[in-house]
């Protein structure tokens, strides 16, 4: 006890965040589904509460710190843009190689309606994908990476990306090519968040990666 208490006191904040992160992810994965509610609606609601509301409440109520610690802040525009482009382009190239190497497009799901309607395509990519990317960015890049692990250095980027990948696998039925753009985006946006400490830029990079991934799929199909 004499050994653990000082250790706990020293790393209290990190332990606190770590328990909340793993606890949140566990509750999210194990949360019983409501059979009378659409799965997508349930996912958005859960993600909103657990990935956005919960970290904000934690920061404000427990840590009593400003939201900027979650990455809700800007950055130098030029640096931000460069950082975004610096990760988006290579990630998209990797995605393109994957598309050309593996039969990804055959098992990649896209709503049929976006094939036929450009306005729906825009709505889907901007609103749905944009919202989804935002939710993930707040939690994994803001809460996990910026608030919790940034002090660990560049390895924090890979750790949060691995954690994200495991989360996707655990919440789904295993790995599928559907998860690949998300994982790639987590890696890219992780770098952006790490260097800019700004969630908006990391969100922009993640959204661009996801958007372009879908575009490439549509082009290849």
């Amino acid at each position: 006890m004499n050994f653990f208490l000082p250790l706990l006191s020293k790393w209290k904040r990190s332990f606190q965040i770590a328990i909340l992160v793993f606890g949140t992810l566990a509750v999210y994965v194990l949360f019983p589904a409501e059979s009378r509610l659409d799965v997508t609606v349930q996912s958005i609601l859960l993600s909103t509460v657990f990935f956005v509301v919960l970290p904000i409440l934690f920061v404000k109520l427990i840590l009593h710190e400003p939201l900027s610690v979650l990455g809700f802040q800007g950055s130098k525009h030029r640096f931000g843009i460069i950082a975004v482009l610096a990760v988006v382009i290579p990630i998209i190239l990797v995605w393109y190689v994957l598309l050309r190497t593996y039969p990804v497009s055959e098992s990649y799901y896209l709503p049929a309606i976006i094939h036929d309607s450009f306005p729906f395509f825009l709505l889907y990519e901007i609103i749905l994908i944009g919202a989804l990317a935002f939710l993930y960015e707040v939690f994994f890049r803001g809460f996990v990476l910026i608030l919790w692990l940034r002090k660990a250095g560049i390895w924090a980027v890979f750790f949060q990306s691995a954690l994200f990948a495991l989360f996707l696998i655990a919440s789904g039925v295993g790995f599928s090519w559907q998860d690949a753009p998300l994982i790639l985006a987590s890696l890219g946006s992780g770098f952006v968040a790490f260097y800019t400490r700004s969630v908006p830029y990391s969100w922009l990079s993640a959204w661009l990666i996801l958007f372009l991934s879908d575009v490439l799929i549509l082009i290849i199909r």
Binding site: L20, G23, E34, F58
Partner: peptide, 13 residues
């Protein structure tokens, strides 16, 4: 159920 779970989690931590 969702808010109850989140609140419990936050409170515990």
């Amino acid at each position: 159920r969702m808010f109850l779970s989140g609140g419990l989690l936050l409170f515990t931590v």
